[in-house]
């Protein structure tokens, strides 16, 4: 039976979630910011500390489990979501955070990712997207842009890429957000939103790898270009961007169109993250440079029954109608005979 989440029994601070292990990412790695924000937001969440579970796969991203003073499973390559699914179903009270990378989650773990999105199990999945395999030293990943030189594509990457938001929303994700590693405030907001969302929450962090893809997100996150190149979405607000908020988005035929913003023109679109029909949210997730800015913030947050609750509600219902109180009732049901 699913029980309500127990009360958080003590005030927690960021330090409560810092383990005693030395953090060993490269200096300047975007992962530090993600770790700091996880520790900070965890302390704000309404869960007892012992009910936090961090699950990760393999890769630089996945070391984060050792740095969080929570229960944790540093699992195997690509399988963090599967491990987390079993843990959450076994104990639906847990507040489960999956940390994974673009290689771990979108390549070897792709199957588990799409099925988590489809089921809408209440997991929070943070994908550290540095668009490269870092720990194995620089091979192309499913998100490596065309033309980027890698160890496996020395003349430049030639494979088509995944847009993580497109895959997630296409697979049925009810929550998708994107955030740059350089924007702690937005990251904090997005993590809290993901925490509050009952269902699979996917957060893509545009994370910088200082060794293999240093500056790969610079056009989007750089000081001088970010206003033009980021569309920071807020539910219910007009979708405007540019240094002076001078651009907005409209529909043209079946496509989004960038146009000089006029607040009196009702054809400019407002963001609706809650709309169940994901068509426009998908279009927003897919916007890319140079014709459009890249969407940030909560792109989709739609209500749908979460899998873990459905599973436990169903168990509760069938149990209520069951004539089996104990295994002995089951064993003695049906056709039996006695030997005296």
């Amino acid at each position: 039976m699913q029980t309500d989440v127990k009360d958080k029994n003590e005030a927690l601070t960021r330090k409560d979630f810092a383990s005693d292990q030395n953090v060993r990412w490269c200096p300047g790695c975007g992962d530090y910011m993600i770790l700091a924000n996880m520790q900070k937001t965890f302390a704000q969440m309404d869960h007892a500390k012992e009910d936090f579970l961090s699950v990760s796969g393999i890769g630089c991203s996945s070391r984060i489990t050792y740095y969080l003073d929570t229960y944790g499973i540093h699992s195997i390559h690509g399988r963090a979501i599967a491990v987390a699914t079993g843990a959450k179903l076994a104990n639906p009270e847990l507040n489960v955070w999956v940390s994974t990378g673009d290689g771990d989650c979108m390549a070897i773990g792709g199957n588990h990712f799409i099925h988590a999105c489809r089921r809408n199990i209440d997991l929070n999945i943070i994908i550290f997207n540095n668009k490269i395999y870092g720990m194995t030293k620089g091979q192309s990943s499913p998100t490596t842009p065309e033309g980027t030189k890698t160890k496996t594509a020395p003349e430049g990457n030639y494979e088509n890429t995944f847009n993580i938001g497109e895959v997630a929303i296409g697979a049925g994700a009810t929550f998708f957000a994107r955030v740059p590693d350089k924007d702690p405030k937005l990251m904090e907001e997005v993590m809290m939103e993901a925490y509050r969302h009952k269902g699979t929450s996917v957060i893509e962090v545009l994370q910088n790898c200082v060794i293999f893809t240093d500056g790969i997100h610079e056009q989007i996150t750089g000081k001088d270009t970010k206003d033009d190149n980021q569309l920071v979405l807020e539910h219910g607000k007009p979708m405007v961007f540019g240094k002076d908020q001078q651009y907005g988005l409209k529909l043209e035929g079946m496509k989004l169109k960038k146009a000089p913003y006029d607040e009196n023109d009702p054809t400019f679109l407002k963001h609706d993250a809650h709309e169940p029909d994901s068509a426009l949210q998908l279009a927003l997730a897919k916007l890319e440079l140079p014709d459009f800015p890249v969407s940030m913030g909560v792109i989709r947050k739609s209500d749908k029954p979460n899998f873990d609750k459905t599973v436990h509600d169903r168990i509760a219902t069938v149990r209520e109608h069951s004539s089996f109180e104990s295994v002995s009732d089951l064993f003695n049901s049906g056709n039996t005979w006695d030997i005296e």
């Binding site: 499973i73 399988r79 491990v83 843990a87 076994a90």
Partner: peptide, 8 residues
């Protein structure tokens, strides 16, 4: 993997 998570 799910069984491992459930065991933990």
């Amino acid at each position: 993997c799910a069984a491992i998570g459930a065991s933990f």
